[in-house]
Design a protein around this nucleic acid. Sequence first.
DNA 1: TAAAAAAGTGTAATTTTATTACATTTGACT
DNA 2: AGTCAAATGTAATAAAATTACACTTTTTTA
Lengths: 284, 284
Amino acid sequence: MMNVLEQITQNLEKLSKSERKVADVIQASPKTAIHSSIAALAKMADVSEPTVNRFCRRMDTKGFPDFKLHLAQSLANGTPYVNRNVEETDNVEEYTTKIYDSTLASLDRSKQMIDTAAINRAVDILTQAKKISFFGLGASASVAQDALNKFFRFNVPVASYEDALMQRMSCINSTEGDVIVFISHTGRTKSLVDIAQIDKQNDANVIGITARNSPLADACHLVISTEIPEDTDLYMPMASRIGQLVIIDVLATGFTLRRGSKFRENLQKVKQGIRDSRYTKTPD
Amino acid sequence: MMNVLEQITQNLEKLSKSERKVADVIQASPKTAIHSSIAALAKMADVSEPTVNRFCRRMDTKGFPDFKLHLAQSLANGTPYVNRNVEETDNVEEYTTKIYDSTLASLDRSKQMIDTAAINRAVDILTQAKKISFFGLGASASVAQDALNKFFRFNVPVASYEDALMQRMSCINSTEGDVIVFISHTGRTKSLVDIAQIDKQNDANVIGITARNSPLADACHLVISTEIPEDTDLYMPMASRIGQLVIIDVLATGFTLRRGSKFRENLQKVKQGIRDSRYTKTPD
DNA sequence: TAAAAAAGTGTAATTTTATTACATTTGACT
DNA sequence: AGTCAAATGTAATAAAATTACACTTTTTTA
C-alpha cells in the first residue's frame, strides 16, 4: 500500500472541514500522532473521536490502530530523507551516523526513482555486446574499475581505462557492436563528453550512468540516472558513487540472469579459481 | 531507538520459555504480528496475554500497541531482516528491488554495528601518518582506488597498488610513521595477509577494513569491520564493498574534521581545479 | 425560497483490546 | 522434602476504539 503521509497530502481536497482539522494535526506532528490515543488526537484537532476514526477509514485503513501502524511505517521510511550535513563540531558518533543516514536516504530515493525500463534496455545492449568498456574519471574511475572486475568474470571482452588519453585512443577504433558505458555523476566532465560523441559517431552503443539533461546524457543512446542529488562541486562524492555501484550490481545481475543457467555454471568456475588463493574459513 | 527485530534476536537468550515462544511467533511472521491483537498473538504462541505484554516490555517498549508500532517501523525499513536473494525467474523490477533492498539492509546493519571507537583511533592514526597506502585485491581494489582518490585531495603522500607484486615491493621499505590500510571482505586473501605481516614487522601502522577474527585481522593493529555477512565465495561482492566505501567516507570525513578549518580551505582549492575541467551547470 | 434530502458531526452505549492484581505453578537450591 | 524465587496464568479492571443513532449543517430541487 501507499505511503500514508502522501495519501493525506493527495486527498486533502476531498476531506470535510473536521476531517481536515485531523489531517492538519497529523501533518504538523506525525510523531506525536502515532503515540496518541484516538481520544487525545480528537482533542488536539478539536473534533470528536468518531471523526478521527472516519478520517482513518477514508485513508484506506481499517481504523485508528491500523492507521497508526501505516503512519509509523511512513515515518520510518521518511525520516532519513533529510540530508543531514556534517558539522565542524560533530563527534565520531555524530558524523558516522550522519554519513550512514544520508547514504541510506540517497539509496532509498534512488530505489524509488530508478527507471527499470532503462535498466532492461541496458541489459539487452550489454548481453549483445562484442566488447564492453567502462569509462569514468575521478571518483567514477573506481566505479568503472569495479564494473570491470564484475564483467570480467563473465568472460566477455571488457576494458576500462582511467586515463583520459587512453580512453580517447580506445574510442577512435570503436565500432558497431561495441558498448561503452560512461560513468559520471555530474555528466559535465568535458573529456568524457568528447569521447562519448566520437563513440556515437562510430555507431558504437553508448550508455551513460549519469545525470539526466546533462551534456553527457545528450551524447548517450541510453541514460540511467541514479537520481541522487549530491553536489560534488562542494562536497566529496559519497552517496553518488554508491548509487552508481548499485546500478552496476543491478546490470551485472540482469546480465547473468539473461545469459541463463549454462552461463552461471561458468561463473562458479571463476569463483573456484579465486577461492584457491584464499585461506579456508577454519584455518586452525 | 534500536530496530526491534534485531533487539529480539539479540535478547533471545535472556528470554524465558514462554517469552521465547512469543519471540518465535513474531520472528516467523512479523507481518502477521503487527495486524494481530494481543489475544490473537497469545493464542498463536500458546501463552497467556500478560506474557505477551511482559515480552513487549522486555523489548523496551511501553506495551503491546507501542511494540507493534516499533515493529511496523522495523518492517518498513525495506524488510531488512531477510536477505532477499535473486531468483532465476525474477523480472527487472524484482531483481532491481531485491538488490536495492539487500544493500539498504546491509548498510543499516552496518550502521548499527559499527565500532566508532575503532573509527576514532583510525582517524587518529591517519592524521599522524607520514604516508598512507591503500591495498585491496579484486573487488576491494576499486575500493582502495576510491580511497586513494579521496585522500589524494588532502595533500598527504598517499599510494595504492592493485598489483600484488607492487604491493609486496612497496611494503619492503615500509617504516614507522607509515600507515597501510588493507581492504578485504573475507580477510582470507593470502597475499594480503603476507604483506600485512611484513608491514607489521617493519613497525608500520596496519589498519584492516576487514572481517573480525580473520587471518588478516590478526595481522592488523586495528580492525574496522563492516559486519556485513555477504558470502563472496558464492556471490559477487555487492553490499560488502559498499559497506567498505561508506567506511572510507567516514574516515575521510573524520580526517578533514580533525585537520581543522585551515585545512578545509585547501580542499576548496583542489575542488576549484576540478571544476575548471567541467562544463558549467547551465551550458546553454 | 422553503422543504426535502444528503452529508457531516457529535453523544453515548457497546464492544474490543490491553493492563493490572493476584493466584498458581514451576523449578532451583538447601 | 521443603522453601523461595521466578515464571506463568486467571480473572477483574481499565483503557481504547467502534458503532448506533440523534442532531446539525449544507446542498438540492420543486
